[in-house]
């Protein structure tokens, strides 16, 4: 469902080049939940951004649903709309919009009919009762669950989560990863999540480890 081939990213600075990702091969199929682990600066965010088409690789290629990311920003925006959902550590909800409006936002950009999709997604993450609340009135866990509902609004094929539990306590972290597990199982979503937390790795099908831009398979699907 999501595939990277010899994916490399080099950031060129005035005096040096930083190789954030070195010839990484990666794949996650439909219904698979893969966790990317590694210390800060190892290249986890770079990998997720490249897989989700937010950034362009220096070498190699990434594809979602069999389609390689185009260099054209307009086509990339369209492909992001149709295939990928993002979840961030900082939630990044719009503070002036209600939970429901935040979930509706991707539908607004894809011009899809909203209907009850946003309501159903909020219900699925257990937040139907908080739909009229704005982010400042919600807890960290609730905000992240709203952000997950938002990421699912356009019915993506792949869910990419960059340190989604970085700002959450243990209980909420576990709830978020259990939700990912459920989404992979019930909806056939390919979920790729980066985390520091080794305890959460047990919920995943596979764990890959990144160190200094090099990707290694650590554990085969359980």
């Amino acid at each position: 469902m999501v595939k990277a081939t010899q994916l490399s990213k080099t950031y060129r600075l005035p005096n040096e080049s930083i190789h954030a990702l070195k010839k990484a091969d990666f794949e996650a199929s439909a219904g698979e939940f893969v966790i990317v682990m590694g210390p800060s600066g190892a290249g986890k965010t770079t990998l997720l951004n490249l897989l989700g088409g937010l950034d362009a690789p220096t070498e190699g290629s990434a594809a979602v649903n069999g389609q390689t990311w185009s260099k054209n920003e307009k086509e990339r925006a369209k492909m992001r709309q149709e295939t990928v959902g993002f979840v961030f550590q900082e939630f990044h909800l719009l503070p002036n919009l209600t939970a429901l409006e935040n979930v509706e936002m991707p539908l607004f950009f894809s011009r899809k009919k909203n209907g009850r999709i946003a309501h159903e997604l909020l219900e699925a993450v257990g937040l139907e009762h908080r739909k009229e609340h704005r982010p400042p009135e919600m807890s960290g866990g609730e905000m992240q669950r709203t952000a997950i509902a938002r990421a699912l609004a356009n019915r993506p094929k792949v869910l990419l989560a960059d340190e989604p539990t970085g700002n959450l306590d243990v209980r909420n972290s576990m709830a978020v990863f259990q939700l990912f597990r459920k989404l992979a199982d019930s909806q056939g979503l390919a979920v790729v999540a980066a985390t520091h937390n080794a305890k959460l790795a047990a919920l995943a099908d596979r764990v890959v480890r990144l160190r200094d831009g090099v990707l290694n398979e650590e554990r085969s699907p359980a």
């Binding site: 989700g52 937010l54 992001r80 709309q81 991707p106 950009f109």
Partner: peptide
Amino acid sequence: IMKAMGAS
């Protein structure tokens, strides 16, 4: 973020 959500 909006662009990540599919905004053109």
